[in-house]
Design a binder for these strands. Structure first.
Lengths: 237, 237
DNA sequence: TGCCGACTTCGTGTCGACAATAAAAATACA
DNA sequence: TGTATTTTTATTGTCGACACGAAGTCGGCA
């Protein structure tokens, strides 16, 4: 689909920042599906592109592999990890639990200053919705929930949740064309309710809202997938 | 305390298995506190020890850093990560939740064959308890719960839980000298109850048992730590 | 004698090259 | 013409060496 011809060279790196640059760049491109799942990741190609030797490239790839974003076949090749549709059940389960836990903890542990950041991101999300900027919605929605997780002050949950949300971004992007506007608008309202519950330190309320929110998103994705499947099933044979 | 003079050389590696050997060896030594938290990790030294060039060593270190087991100070040195006593609250919270979730899911999703593996590990744990083999207890207890998590069939929970349990092993080892036998014996019984609940597919029962089990362990560790603190507080000044 | 700056040293970050390995291509054979 | 075997090729895994950066060290100056 999308060509990867936009290989701009970024020649100058400070010593020690080469790997993290490569890591972050590739990470973004994988999450934003600029690099298609299953597509091969060539070390020499990246070496040329970033004007770095293969050693720092490799270290970045090792980090990406540790996060499961790429898969390395020993001695042969490394590819962008495929989206595991069979494991989607596990994914949704974990995602829902993390939505709930992080929102609960935010209600319990947040400090006043956290709210400002959350509010700002909610505003960004809202403007993205109004502008019908689907990609922006996906990104800002992610940031909004990460901010809530950080207000909850449990790094273990935040780490797992962030990884799950980023995984989710890959899936959402696959289906973003089918977005309509009624759901996103609803999300704005749900976000608003969640913020209120957090401010009121209403832990159980926050939990319930988060659970409902998660269910919304999960069933939305599920419906996209089954709709997609139906299309394939209708293919003339 | 323990010297790290036992640096045996392992010269022969199959191509591609060098890094994983280094990774696993170091990982074990860190978790088992053979490498003290805060102690420096020298690449050249490891290079000599494993009879490998620094490149594969480095890749192993990157993986360890991604898991948080070591900390790399850019351009300077890399050390074995310190145990974060201030973040212990977060740790216990996440640990408890994962105990509950994995046991719940095991009750819901296990297959008959899983039970055999769990039973075998429970037996190992029991023999370690009877032999008063504290180190064995810590290790087999970990394996027992990992097996339950795997029977629950959610890789996201299993991953996080495994990491948490391994972190916990470092903490437990710090205090293993203060172990008495009454608690471990109690754990054997609690494990037995958990297995029964899982077999009966009693999800809520499994949850409750896991929660109680986790609380036991957490309060045990907490009491060790506070006892330790009291000692320091009693120091003559 | 105490503080500031150049120098030395040690270890990491990066590089280019070589070796091994597995897939693909080419060849031989039935 | 189809299949088994050898050869080629592309790409990874590993290596030894160099270069940069930060501590610690030493000497100069007030």
């Amino acid at each position: 689909m999308a060509e990867r011809d936009d290989t701009e060279k970024q020649p100058v790196h400070k010593r020690g920042y080469g790997v993290s640059t490569v890591y972050e760049t590739l990470r973004n491109e994988i999450i934003e599906l600029k690099l298609a799942p299953g597509s091969p990741v060539d070390e020499q190609q990246l070496s040329d592109r970033f004007a770095l030797s293969r050693t720092p490239i490799r270290e970045a790839l090792v980090r990406l592999a540790a996060e499961g974003l790429i898969t390395t076949l020993t001695n042969r090749t490394t590819i962008v990890s495929n989206i595991d549709f069979l494991g989607l059940g596990e994914f949704f389960d974990a995602l829902t639990l993390m939505y709930r836990v992080t929102t609960r903890l935010a209600a319990a542990n947040h400090q006043a200053s956290d709210i400002d950041g959350i509010r700002a991101l909610q505003l960004q999300f809202q403007t993205a919705v109004e502008a019908r900027d689907v990609l922006g919605m996906i990104a800002t929605n992610r940031d909004f929930h990460v901010a809530i997780a950080e207000a909850g002050r449990n790094r273990y949950y935040t780490d797992l949740f962030t990884r799950l949300l980023d995984q989710g971004r890959r899936i959402l992007r696959l289906y973003y064309s089918s977005f309509n506007d009624v759901l996103p608008r609803q999300y704005v309202g749900e976000h608003e309710d969640m913020i209120q519950a957090i401010i009121n330190r209403d832990i159980d309320g926050a939990d319930k809202l988060a659970a409902a929110h998660a269910d919304q998103i999960v069933s939305q994705i599920r419906s996209y997938i089954t709709a997609d499947n139906r299309q394939t099933a209708r293919l003339p044979l």
